[in-house]
Design a protein around this nucleic acid. Sequence first.
DNA 1: TGATTATTTGCGAATTTGTGCAAACATGCT
DNA 2: AGCATGTTTGCACAAATTCGCAAATAATCA
Lengths: 127, 127
Amino acid sequence: MNDLPAQSDDCRTALREQLRPELFRALCDPNRLTLVARFASANRPLTVTEAGTCCGVHISGVSRHLAMLREAGVLQATKQGREVRYELDCGALASALRQLADALENCRAVCCAQTEEMGNECCGSNC
Amino acid sequence: MNDLPAQSDDCRTALREQLRPELFRALCDPNRLTLVARFASANRPLTVTEAGTCCGVHISGVSRHLAMLREAGVLQATKQGREVRYELDCGALASALRQLADALENCRAVCCAQTEEMGNECCGSNC
DNA sequence: TGATTATTTGCGAATTTGTGCAAACATGCT
DNA sequence: AGCATGTTTGCACAAATTCGCAAATAATCA
């Protein structure tokens, strides 16, 4: 069933942990991406109302979008008086993306080496 | 309407180009992520039927999932006889993720510097 | 040619998602 | 307290997504 022996389980489980559907789910909507871009260039906390000006969505929809981005770890929220300040968790998002990139390439490297050890033809054209 | 002067347009448009909804759309489904993980550890081209064994989805659904991943640039396909060999474009995916991470942090750095030049309080708690 | 295998496509059903509106909730102000 | 402002939540509805099945397409083999 598996293509490689058990030793490569580590890199595979590491990769699986990085492949969080919630993150991509949060980032797959055009309006939410517009919001993310807005936060990235605003470079300061924005209220729901402020953030909402960048996409033509009703404020209630903006509220839901921001909540989803927060739950995915993309944004951080702090309540200040009656308004909520959302802020891009730039470091967290960037490092999550880099960790996923690393996990992908590590998985390939490890599995590739093991395939060679086994004396098989290796990795198709990507090796 | 914008928070910063025109000089920061470069990093913002660069970020917008990296924020492709199609990529995240392709990666937001659990079954498609299972397929991606399968390709990453298989480390060689897989046919539609081979790939499909990892998720309990009908072969026609697998075919559609793989096509979507291919259109998003995650997989590459080559037809060989009557079967189609799909392969993870590991380098392309990893570099796309890293470029997005870079664009995010660059956008923050540039906009952050400009905000300071303008003498305003800078960037909230993330600066 | 006909039979078999691999993949894709059309279709309909079930589910999820994005949305606006109205109401509720929370906070601050007079 | 009453009123205004900012945000969230319930609800309904349209659009999109996922899925399995069956039929169509493509390629191999007898």
